[in-house]
């Protein structure tokens, strides 16, 4: 019998250390889009099965190994567990575990790096840990979450190399000013 070997989105491209900043690949486990048909029902079912509520727009929720990220209009992303079947009554469930390349950017200057890539306000006074938004990194559709330690970035898997290249350039520019 044949065996198919899995590859990661970033392969050898990450981690990357520039200045005091680091960007590293993250494996968050299963990623499931929840296409919301019934908010209240879905939130209840999520809490019952995975301990997390359905997040409000621009927010995320977390409990143990399960996280739920707001992911767009009428959409959330369940991160970590395999979704409980009960969720399917209230939402479309779509496995996108392989569709997104996930990286975390850390270190002093991370905010300045993203200011060079995304047209969004990520000042810590307005974008706190757990806050999330959908925007574009350069021209790449992206999700940006502030974590306790940095920024979690999701882009299309096919754009992983471009993300690294854009991060590298912005990190070098920021590092050169420090």
């Amino acid at each position: 019998m044949v065996e198919l070997k899995a590859q990661t989105p970033f392969g050898e491209l990450l981690p990357l250390h520039i200045g005091d900043m680091t960007v590293a690949a993250r494996d968050l486990g299963q990623l499931t889009v929840l296409g919301v048909f019934d908010r209240a029902g879905l939130s209840k079912a999520l809490e019952a099965a995975h301990g997390v509520a359905l997040p409000e727009p621009l927010q995320s929720t977390a409990e143990g190994d399960a996280q739920c990220l707001w992911f767009g209009r009428e959409e959330a992303l369940l991160v970590g567990p395999t979704p409980d079947e009960a969720l399917a009554k209230h939402a479309a469930l779509v496995d996108v575990s392989d569709g997104w390349a996930v990286a975390e950017l850390q270190g002093p200057g991370a905010e300045d790096v993203l200011a060079r890539l995304a047209p969004v306000d990520l000042r810590d006074s307005v974008f706190e840990p757990g806050d999330i938004l959908r925007s574009q990194l350069r021209d790449m559709p992206a999700s940006i979450t502030r974590t306790e330690t940095g920024f979690l970035l999701l882009v299309y898997r096919s754009m992983a190399a471009t993300l690294v290249q854009e991060l590298r350039r912005a990190m070098e520019a920021v590092a050169s000013r420090r």
Partner: peptide, 10 residues
Amino acid sequence: PICGSRDRRE
């Protein structure tokens, strides 16, 4: 109404 004030590029 969902995301707040954003640049028109988006």
